[in-house]
Design a binder for these strands. Sequence first.
DNA 1: ACCTGAACACCGTTCAAGT
DNA 2: ACCTGAACACCGTTCAAGT
Lengths: 182, 182
Amino acid sequence: LSTRKPRADAERNRARVVEAARALFAEHGAEVQMPDVARVAGVGVGTVYRHFPTRQDLVEAAAEHRFAEILEYARGLVGDDDGLAKYLRHVGEVLASDRGLSASIEAARQSAGSEPRGETRTLLEEVVGQLVAHGKAAGTVRKDCTVSDVYMIAGALSAIIRTNAGDWRRLLQIVLSGLSPS
Amino acid sequence: LSTRKPRADAERNRARVVEAARALFAEHGAEVQMPDVARVAGVGVGTVYRHFPTRQDLVEAAAEHRFAEILEYARGLVGDDDGLAKYLRHVGEVLASDRGLSASIEAARQSAGSEPRGETRTLLEEVVGQLVAHGKAAGTVRKDCTVSDVYMIAGALSAIIRTNAGDWRRLLQIVLSGLSPS
DNA sequence: ACCTGAACACCGTTCAAGT
DNA sequence: ACCTGAACACCGTTCAAGT
């Protein structure tokens, strides 16, 4: 795709839309409406749709910095024997603090066939693989644990947090116990 | 509330609506529309709303027989040392075979403060309590396991199944391992 | 090139009119 | 007493007109 210099005001508007979306989704979750985002961003609805063809695209863009944040944290855990446990706890914390994020994760999965598209997600998968591998070597993680398991568990935590279906820390505790070598 | 004999056609219509809803929700999941239910049931939309004030009420009514089915199965597990594991596996099977059911469970949780209202759900809670207690006595279940844990796990399975976020049998395996005595 | 916001489409829900 | 379905409300998305 040919990406030529966008006009200055277009870029500014795009940034404003993402910023408004971040704030609104984090506080109110997925029920935020597009006209609201436009109003808070100070642009017309059409502008929102120009930059993000669908609501889902906006939700994902608003969640992107959270993934970057999580990736950063995960990198700091490489080499830690309890890295996987700490990683999942951190994911839980972030999800619990940003109501829009779990909606984003879920919705992204609904649409895409095989989910993690985007630079950040690919890198994240790599780092999580290292955390799993290190845990196995250190004897803190079961030999049959996979990166897919970790994704699925993050999805489960996300669902429990989003629907308020219970104490996510308790679920994490159970799951981590299940992932430890017998 | 005063419940006086409803008219015969009203009762017949109600049954038709539930029957149509069961079939449609099970096959197409939560995206089924109210006018579709009305059409398949052979009644007007207004009639659907007369019997079920809100879409959610209809979804729950359509899911009721599944809960009854699960309760029945759970009763047969009382006294089985692996009752809890078998119970959760069965819940997974049912959820995987009825796309509307997990939507129902999730949505019910969204609305109600403390979820399990209705006769069946109360009885179910009782039986699950017995399964947990028996497992502890038999040494197949951790001492700190609670009925809430079991509900939360069912919720997690439901979410994974509904969003196609992974292999629910694998999640079940991990969680059961986590609930076994160390 | 990009922006705006009125208009459209879709679907849950209501209610005036019928039997 | 209950049923019907046209009409309303709401919200995601589009597009004709503007700059």
